[in-house]
Design a protein around this nucleic acid. Structure first.
Length: 338
DNA sequence: AATGAAGGCAACCGCAGAAGG
DNA sequence: GCCTTCTGCGGTTGCCTTCAT
């Protein structure tokens, strides 16, 4: 059970590997196999600990290592498997039983009938990729992207940290009041000049602008309501619609205003949140923790919207947050907020 | 052009568990 | 059954590069 003392030994080199060291290690392993990692450095003439040699080999020198950017398929796989394996096995928590029983078909069990650890398990599904590489990719790219999309990277569920966004939400609420006052004819209401300017639209198409602004406000109102619903349901542990919302129509500049205004009824109750999303711009459904086999909203959604921003590969630009792209393309009003 | 910030990645550290004596 | 050794994993760090000011 004790730790290997190899790295505690003094005099062993640490830090980046030189090409000469790489060559020594490579040649030795190609000729003899790695055998015991502990004795390998001495036999190969390397002033490194075995652990360091093993890492260098498995993460860098192995001939089957695939270098370069992750493909969209690989990203999907990582997202999918991470949503399942996001929490590594912990015998203290009963939750793993659920995970084990539900993803049995997804990953191989180890010799004890347990699932292997997360990154290595994911790596087994991505030939040529190392667990370290996947871990780094997750930490530097995918995790951030999920966060920006409003998902908790650990649970793959919508974030519930309502208070983190509170200042923005308050600002939005204020803005909404101002717009409402302006739309009502400006009867004494104090309206921010920039908002008034936006509302008046600057000449032709002013009426359409007002309608679009109204649509935006409705969308933002949904956001506020969504956040509140999330707060209300988070404590109870109830799954379901949890305040998710999906704009049912793309709002394009110069598009049909009436059609654009057909947003889904956000106030229709959580259960209806997905009733209207049968199109490419749907948001990922909430993961139901009671059924982990379907707990992959992000990856599933990405698959369903392969042409969308998720994944960032292929031909599409990799906007981290897809909703405004669908709803308000290139609109700084939304993109600034998000 | 210089400088600081941010991002990306390789490598290290420490823990956990299997294997073997 | 206990102890030691060895391997593998996840988390974290620190360096290097790129980007922004």
């Amino acid at each position: 059970m004790g730790r290997s003392p190899c790295c505690d030994e003094s005099g062993l080199k640490k830090g980046p590997w030189t090409p000469e060291e790489d060559e020594k290690l490579l040649q030795y392993i190609q000729k003899n196999g790695h055998g015991s990692w502990r004795t390998l450095p001495r036999l190969a003439g390397l002033n490194r600990c075995g652990k360091s040699c093993r890492l260098r080999w498995t993460n860098y020198l192995r001939p089957d290592i695939k270098r370069g950017k992750f493909s969209q398929d690989e990203e999907q796989t990582i997202l999918h498997l991470h949503s399942i394996l996001g929490n590594k096995y912990d015998p203290v928590h009963r939750s793993m039983h659920r995970i084990r029983s539900s993803i049995r078909h997804e990953t191989e069990l180890d010799r004890n009938g347990l699932f292997p650890r997360r990154w290595s398990a994911i790596a087994t599904h991505l030939p040529g990729r190392t667990d370290n590489e996947i871990k780094n990719f997750w930490n530097t790219h995918l995790k951030k992207r999920l966060i920006q999309m409003g998902f908790d990277p650990m649970t793959h569920r919508p974030r519930t940290d309502f208070f983190a966004a509170l200042p923005q939400l308050i600002a939005l609420a204020t803005l909404r009041d101002q717009l409402a006052a302006a739309a009502a004819g400006g009867g004494g209401g104090v309206v921010d000049p920039s908002v008034a300017a936006q509302l008046q639209g600057g000449g032709a198409g002013g009426g359409a602008d007002v309608a679009i602004q109204a649509a935006k406000m409705q969308y933002l109102q949904c956001l506020l309501q969504s956040a509140a619903t999330t707060i209300a349901t988070a404590g109870s542990g109830v799954g379901g619609g949890g305040g998710m919302l999906a704009p049912a129509m793309m709002i394009t500049s110069g598009g049909d205003v009436e059609a654009n205004l057909r947003l889904i009824g956000c106030g229709a109750g959580a259960g209806d949140a997905y009733a209207c999303h049968g199109h490419g711009g749907a948001l990922p459904p909430l993961a139901d923790l009671s059924d982990v086999t379907t707990a992959n909203p992000v990856a599933d959604w990405c698959s369903a919207t392969a042409s969308s921003s998720c994944g960032g590969g292929g031909g599409g630009a990799s906007s981290p947050f897809p909703w405004p792209e669908f709803c308000f393309p290139d609109d700084p009003f939304i993109t600034d907020f998000l």
